[in-house]
């Protein structure tokens, strides 16, 4: 299968701190690839670096055959990459509809179709269309953030810990919807919730201390108790 996105020996700093030391992995078209790793391992920084919100000091990030390392975020976004940040990045004073409008660059048949599809997936967004984003529940905010990243004809979604802080039933709902999005778009998911990750992931990469240390098929990881214990602290 083709790889849509490929990171090769990426290094990055935040201010003077060397955070990413050696990140290499590839995301294949049509798959859900999952980044795993302990708190503080560098997963969020990796997503932000792909998005151009953090600069690359060494290495390459290739998207559809083109090096996008150190491009500006809006240029990267316009190439078809959408970000659902860890804090969801909802515009709190804007309504759900306005949050979607900011994302939608044009309103044509294609974008209307995508909007309708995603509103069917997340009926709550339709219901609370005129409600300020800041007043949504945690789960609804997550749905809005995902819908907003999806609606722009993006081919790759970077989703950072969508289950964080959500009640188990809501996690199930989000898991289900990400599963449904698989047919439409490629996903790079950061997820600490191993149950969720194992349900929707095709392949995984483990990041430890700013380095990609392992990768493989999700199926294989499910039975590899030793690996889970060493890198994920799951016993």
């Amino acid at each position: 299968m083709n790889s849509l996105l490929k990171l090769n020996q990426v290094e990055a700093y935040i201010n003077q701190y060397h955070i990413l030391h050696n990140i290499s992995f590839d995301v294949r078209e049509g798959e859900v690839n999952v980044l795993l790793g302990r708190n503080g391992a560098g997963k969020t920084t990796t997503l932000r670096t792909i998005m151009g919100l953090n600069s690359v000091s060494k290495g390459t990030i290739t998207y559809e055959g083109e090096n996008i390392a150190n491009e500006k975020p809006h240029i990267i976004a316009n190439k078809g990459i959408g970000l659902v940040p860890e804090d969801q990045g909802i515009f709190a004073d804007l309504t759900v509809g306005e949050n979607m409008s900011v994302a939608m660059k044009q309103e044509n048949a294609e974008s209307t179709k995508r909007l309708e599809w995603v509103l069917e997936l997340f009926p709550d967004l339709k219901k609370f269309w005129r409600k300020p984003g800041g007043q949504l529940s945690g789960g609804q905010k997550q749905m809005l953030a995902i819908a907003r990243a999806y609606v722009n004809e993006n081919e790759l979604l970077l989703i950072d810990e969508p289950s964080k802080g959500l009640a188990p039933v809501v996690v199930e709902k989000v898991t289900e919807s990400i599963q449904q999005m698989k047919d439409q778009t490629t996903i790079l998911l950061v997820e600490q919730n191993f149950l969720m990750a194992s349900q929707i992931g095709d392949r995984f990469f483990i990041i430890d201390n700013g380095e990609t240390v392992h990768h493989g098929e999700m199926e294989a990881l499910k039975t590899d108790k030793a690996m889970m214990k060493t890198y994920l602290g799951i016993s």
Binding site: M51, K72, F91, D93, S101, V102
Partner: peptide, 24 residues
């Protein structure tokens, strides 16, 4: 207007506005 929405959104969260493809 769209530009007005973008400005309001930008006041709240600049990075997110950029990540949505807007040249801030």
């Amino acid at each position: 207007t769209r530009i007005g929405l973008i400005v309001r959104a930008g006041v709240m969260n600049k990075e997110m506005v950029q990540s949505l493809g807007i040249n801030i």
